[in-house]
Design a protein around this nucleic acid. Structure first.
Lengths: 287, 287
DNA sequence: GTTCCGCATGAATCGATAG
DNA sequence: ACTATCGATTCATGCGGAA
């Protein structure tokens, strides 16, 4: 029986990542600390230094990711002095120069973000989930995230007209054509690039990270069982917990030892539930 | 009684804008032709030339906008050969260099996005609505766009169908973690920066790029009655029609005379309904 | 009239196949 | 090795005709 490995490493990920084998990771899902002058994790990265701070890390991520792998970066620029910062869009350009492909930008639309306002803006209800890849041919298991077909199918597919049974090209030359009969008996359809997930509440002693649904969706989409998932900014360990539950090997890194200890404890407790898995903290094994 | 003026001008907006007084416009809402799109009507701007094409126009927009005014740019980059193009984010950086403040990025979350599914990506269900300003002190009438608390709880501006609720649940699974009782006794709440509107497409001879709700929301938020609204890429005239209905003066520019004639006719027909307003095509008057 | 139902429509993008 | 065309995918909306 195969075992699931969940490794938790303490340290600055820029250094710790160097201990990980190249081309060994199938998926990186992470939410790095946002630029913030006041925070003391990572010394508080200033917005104007954010790109320079991130590039050495992403260079290691580029090294450890398999060519068929995917890197999902959950990030949102802060507003300061009435403006949105530009460090995130500058980071996209810099990552492309570093060799990453900017494949897509998914939107995390926060379901239950509180109403609220400032004099010049409303509550920010969305974050970017930027998808980067090493090559154009990456693994994507689209069937794993399909959703039920909409109400329209009930009425529309009841009785088909003649044009419904063949490919019917759009009359206005848009190039869009469809064959309605393809949709008979179809129960599920593919989703789009807006993810409508709830936010999580701050009930633990750490700042709120993303909800489990977010890494789960990407893990489902970009990995299969026993693949390797990495979160270099582990925080409260959401990605690792989800990966373990979904039978993916995972590596988490965090600079704050309190987080590391907390996640280790949490993962160990889950051993009693999922006793067929095994957690290793010290040794590094790859397929 | 004050009269509403609706002016429709034919020509290249880069030139036509020069005839408009400086500091005279309260709100610019526009959706320029996207790169490589609408080739048959606008000729199609190449992605690599997009920023250079747009900057002379935005320079005129900067001139005609009042210091308290707002510029809303609806745009979305295309995907090509597996990657998202970067010309839109390069445009944001270039507009800031030109003197604009990048205040906010609203998301237009399209209810009925264009169908599509490819080996490497899903349907694109959102577009950017970028907010730029000349100064940090711009007019914003936040109370005008408040929404009923029930709609906010659904995360939508309209109620969900039963199937939509199931689809939503299958995507996120979790309910509300937060105590929303504080909001229950309030009639209306402020919205957030995600706008959930449907696209418009009908079987008549023209289709609107964006639905009326989109310019209506921004006109409500950033102008009051008798303010001046400008759309330099008028197209089918959605912005002008909405502005007129909401008793705002407006100027529309388009290079295609067919569109200009069509919108003129449409605006004139609405005279019979809203006979207290008056449309002027030739003279230019400002407060 | 008014409501119901049928159905065309769309800022798209990829791979495969044909010329 | 180019370019051109075709097939696949999908659902809210509004029009027009029927009930």
């Amino acid at each position: 029986m195969k075992k699931i490995e969940t490794k938790i490493l303490q340290g600055d990920c820029k250094e710790v990542l160097k201990t990980i084998d190249e081309n060994s990771i199938n998926l990186i899902v992470t939410s790095p600390p946002y630029a913030d002058r006041r925070k003391n994790t990572y010394g508080g990265i200033k917005p104007e230094n954010y790109v320079d701070w991130f590039l050495p890390i992403s260079n290691e991520l580029l090294r450890v990711l398999k060519p068929s792998g995917t890197f999902i970066l959950n990030i949102k620029e802060k507003a300061e002095e009435g403006e949105r910062h530009t460090y995130v869009i500058e980071l996209i350009l810099a990552l492309r120069k570093q060799g990453w492909l900017w494949t897509e930008e998914y939107i995390w639309y926060k379901k239950n973000s509180y109403p609220g306002k400032w004099p010049n803006r409303f509550r920010d209800a969305w974050e970017r989930c930027l998808q980067f890849n090493k090559s154009k041919r990456f693994n994507m298991y689209q069937e794993e995230v399909m959703i039920p077909v909409g109400d329209w199918a009930n009425g529309r597919l009841k009785n088909l007209s003649e044009t419904d049974k063949i490919r019917d090209n759009s009359k206005n030359g848009s190039g869009f054509g469809k064959n309605i009969s393809n949709w008979l008996n179809r129960e599920k359809v593919y989703p789009n690039n807006v993810l409508h997930f709830a936010t999580v509440c701050n009930n633990k002693n750490h700042s709120a990270a993303f909800p489990e649904e977010l890494p789960e969706w990407f893990i489902r989409l970009f990995t299969k069982e026993f693949d390797n998932v990495l979160d270099p900014f582990m925080g409260s360990g959401t990605t690792l917990n989800v990966a373990k539950r979904m039978k993916r090997n995972s590596i988490g890194i965090d600079i704050i030892s309190e987080y590391v200890e907390m996640v280790k404890k949490e993962i160990q407790e889950s051993e009693f539930v999922l006793f067929e898995t095994k957690t290793e903290y010290e040794t590094v094994k790859h397929e």
